[in-house]
Amino acid sequence: MSTITRHHVGPRMSQIVTHNGTVYLAGQVGKPTDDVAQQTKSCLEQIDTLLAEAGSDKTRMLQVVIWLADMSDFAAMNAVWDTWVPEGHTPARATGEAKLATPDHLVEFIVTAAQN
């Protein structure tokens, strides 16, 4: 039986789950008082930190699902994303609009990656 490892376990979720060389991150959100660009930046910084802790990095991302509270923020989010994601290592990606945990959260990233 393969091992499932959980990090930063809380009552509702774990921030990182690894299984069979795959890293699953919980949805990452930014500070609710920030604009979408700053929320995106802080989400991506958190993703870098969590992937490193799990033995991975952004070049190993397999899939990213992005939820925006308002699709009119798509260009502003992408402007930050495009400077962060390594050329030649873009993951499979989907972006949609959804109500997030609070009205002040403007973007959420859900990442799946391979371990190094």
Rank of each mutant, 00 (worst) to 15 (best):
S2V: 08
T3M: 14
T3K: 14
I4R: 11
T5A: 13
T5I: 09
R6K: 13
H7Y: 14
H7I: 08
V9T: 08
G10L: 06
G10K: 07
M13T: 13
M13H: 14
I16L: 02
T18V: 04
T18Q: 01
T18L: 01
H19A: 14
N20F: 05
N20A: 15
G21V: 02
V23E: 01
Y24D: 03
Y24H: 05
Y24P: 03
L25S: 00
L25K: 00
A26M: 00
G27A: 06
Q28N: 08
V29T: 07
G30A: 02
G30F: 00
K31W: 10
T33M: 12
D34R: 14
D34C: 14
D34Q: 14
V36M: 06
V36T: 10
A37W: 08
A37Y: 08
Q38D: 14
Q39Y: 04
T40G: 07
K41E: 15
K41M: 15
C43A: 07
L44W: 02
L44I: 00
E45S: 14
Q46S: 11
Q46M: 10
Q46I: 07
I47F: 01
D48E: 11
T49F: 10
L50H: 03
L50W: 03
L51F: 03
A52C: 10
A54E: 04
A54P: 05
G55P: 04
S56R: 01
S56C: 02
S56W: 00
S56Q: 00
S56F: 01
S56M: 01
D57E: 02
D57C: 06
K58D: 09
T59W: 06
T59L: 09
L62V: 11
L62K: 12
L62I: 09
Q63T: 13
Q63S: 11
V64N: 05
V64R: 02
V64S: 04
V65P: 03
V65L: 13
V65M: 13
I66Y: 01
W67T: 11
W67F: 13
L68S: 00
D70N: 12
D70V: 06
D73A: 08
D73E: 10
F74I: 06
A75K: 10
A75M: 11
M77Y: 11
N78K: 09
A79F: 04
A79K: 12
V80E: 12
V80I: 15
W81M: 05
D82L: 12
D82W: 08
T83H: 10
W84Y: 05
P86Q: 04
E87A: 13
H89N: 07
T90L: 13
P91C: 05
R93T: 10
A94G: 12
G96I: 06
L100N: 04
L100Q: 04
P103C: 05
D104F: 12
H105E: 13
H105P: 08
L106K: 09
V107L: 05
V107E: 07
F109N: 03
V111K: 02
V111L: 04
T112R: 12
T112D: 08
A113V: 00
A113E: 01
Q115M: 11
Q115L: 03
